[in-house]
Amino acid sequence: MGTLVTLHLPPGSPLTDAPWVITIGSLGDREGWDPVVCGPYERDHAIALARAVVADDDLMAVVEPMYPLDSADAIRTEIEAARALAEDDTAPADDLRAEPSAGGPPPPTPEPAQVHDGWRRIAARLAR
């Protein structure tokens, strides 16, 4: 049984609508292969796919949002915001949630057609 790690988002977080990626690697670096990064996905699809992959294997999946930033300055601004948040003592220290892949009924794993529909929705949001 593997582990799924993702951000704990407050209700209404704008990150929910961001594209999400899955990074899957060996649990505890016991194997000598590079992690696999895949996506983008809609958040619910990413979580369901990651959960399905790690359910029966000693793997770790990290599901996190992508920031579709279009310039080096935009990336620098995001880095500075992250640094400032890290220095703020009032911010929650633990916004990551690790959970075993089994724990209640898993969400249904999306079919490829559903993932493709999600890609079209992501592309439409990014093209705005």
Results as ranks from 00 to 15, higher is better:
20 W>C: 00
9 L>R: 12
23 T>D: 14
78 E>Q: 15
68 P>H: 03
51 R>S: 04
46 A>N: 02
76 R>F: 13
29 D>I: 07
10 P>K: 14
61 A>P: 01
42 E>A: 08
10 P>T: 12
3 T>W: 03
90 T>N: 09
81 A>W: 03
84 A>L: 07
123 A>I: 12
7 L>W: 09
7 L>Q: 09
72 A>G: 14
59 L>F: 05
73 D>M: 04
4 L>G: 01
72 A>F: 11
117 D>A: 15
44 D>Q: 14
6 T>C: 09
95 D>F: 12
53 V>A: 11
14 P>L: 11
49 L>M: 13
53 V>I: 14
112 P>I: 00
50 A>F: 03
2 G>C: 01
10 P>D: 14
79 I>Q: 09
108 P>F: 03
25 G>I: 02
37 V>Q: 13
73 D>Y: 10
125 R>E: 13
110 P>D: 00
74 A>F: 09
60 M>H: 03
84 A>T: 10
115 V>P: 00
19 P>T: 00
106 P>I: 05
115 V>C: 01
127 A>T: 08
51 R>L: 07
18 A>Y: 12
92 P>H: 07
94 D>E: 11
77 T>R: 14
69 L>D: 10
112 P>A: 03
83 R>L: 15
100 P>K: 05
36 V>R: 06
14 P>D: 11
59 L>D: 05
20 W>K: 05
94 D>W: 10
127 A>I: 06
114 Q>R: 12
68 P>K: 04
9 L>H: 13
127 A>M: 10
85 L>S: 15
23 T>G: 06
90 T>V: 04
33 W>V: 07
82 A>K: 14
4 L>D: 02
69 L>H: 13
68 P>W: 04
81 A>F: 01
99 E>F: 04
68 P>Q: 01
34 D>F: 05
53 V>E: 07
100 P>S: 11
84 A>I: 00
96 L>D: 11
41 Y>E: 02
45 H>V: 00
121 R>H: 14
126 L>E: 08
124 A>V: 06
123 A>N: 11
35 P>A: 01
23 T>P: 02
22 I>L: 04
82 A>G: 12
100 P>N: 12
32 G>F: 03
122 I>Y: 04
